[in-house]
């Protein structure tokens, strides 16, 4: 097991390296820079700025300098927010996004499996049809439609919930409700469909027939023999789901004005704030890789047929 973890961990390094390198050159090659948007600066000030950020050096040198810094967990200064480093910016925003993401994924997982199981047990009854139509709706409606419509109804018309903000604001935990619903919708829907399908398949499997032939009650059959096998595919889906949620949070943070890394990402992309974009890409990639890593290990723990040698 530990050998597997180490090997898996080592295989991550080249991926990360390639991601960082690719995005570094991609971004530098783009026309325009972080300072081109501002009103024309006098050339000597421009030169000063360039020198300060080492942008007058050859590209390759800049690359190695950047890589060296990154290895020491220093993501550099922000070009836009003059007095903040990328580490500060991301450090403040990261917990917010991770909290939003995990809560959304947790809710999606919980509700999705409950709805999926109910609808598999009521297969082809109205509950099933209703749940599955809702699920297709959940998959079809994009977050940037769900979010504003929820906001319109619950915040602006009914005034039950605050329109935006995050925990620290006066409304407290109420601020979480709409962002979480918006973010989890498609994943909830997908998990519901997936767990229904997988449950139905397992309920038809040979080993469940064996369990029934033993005289076990249907509830025991489901609990003891069906659920575990049926939930395994969901575990494999958690990796992609998490990465989707992370991307999705870019929009949700935008809509509900949440100070997370998604919002920083869009802002810095619009401002061409290179170092911040780069830092964000690195953080996102690490989150994704870590999520897939955890899922792999989880899968191995749940399925006795898999052994890590």
């Amino acid at each position: 097991m530990s050998r597997f973890i180490v090997r898996r961990f080592l295989s991550v390094i080249p991926t990360l390296f390639i991601i960082v390198t690719l995005s570094f050159f991609l971004i530098r090659l783009a026309p325009g820079g972080p300072f081109s948007g501002e009103k024309k600066l006098p050339p000597e000030i421009m030169a000063n700025i360039m020198r300060k950020y080492h942008m007058d050096e050859p590209l390759v040198k800049q690359y190695f300098r950047y890589m060296g810094d990154v290895l020491q967990f220093d993501l550099g200064p922000s070009y836009r927010y003059k007095d903040q480093t990328v580490n500060d910016l991301i450090g403040n925003a990261f917990p917010v996004s991770v909290m939003l993401g995990t809560m959304a994924l947790g809710t999606a997982l919980l509700l999705g499996t409950i709805v999926g199981i109910t609808s598999a047990l009521k297969q082809n009854k109205w509950q099933d049809y209703a749940a599955m139509s809702v699920a297709v709706l959940g998959i079809s409606v994009p977050a940037f439609v769900v979010g504003p419509i929820l906001m319109l109804i619950f915040a602006l018309k009914l005034k039950w919930l605050p329109t935006s903000g995050w925990l620290s604001s006066r409304a407290g935990a109420l601020t979480l409700i709409m962002p979480i619903i918006t973010l989890m919708m498609p994943y909830f829907a997908y998990i519901a469909r997936m767990s229904r399908g997988s449950l139905i398949e397992v309920m038809r499997s040979d080993y469940v027939r064996t369990a029934r032939a033993k005289g076990l009650k249907e509830s025991v059959v489901i609990r003891k023999h069906v659920l575990k096998g049926a939930m395994l595919p969901i575990v494999t889906y958690l990796g992609p789901a998490f990465s989707g949620i992370i991307t999705g949070s870019v929009v949700v943070e935008q809509i509900f004005v949440i100070p997370g890394i998604g919002r920083i990402f869009v802002q810095s992309a619009l401002n061409r704030d290179y170092t911040v974009i780069m830092g964000d890409v690195i953080v996102y990639s690490i989150i994704l890789i870590a999520a897939n890593f955890v899922v792999d290990i989880l899968y191995g723990l749940l399925d006795p047929r898999i052994s890590y040698k």
Binding site: D206, Y207, R209, T210, A213, K214, G215, H225, G229, P304
Partner: peptide
């Protein structure tokens, strides 16, 4: 249910799939 597995039991064609792998 009191009869299944108790008074009448069954074994199936494919032993590879008939036992719960988990």
């Amino acid at each position: 249910r009191k009869i299944r597995g108790n008074k009448i039991s069954m074994i199936f064609q494919d032993p590879m799939t008939c036992l719960n792998p988990f």
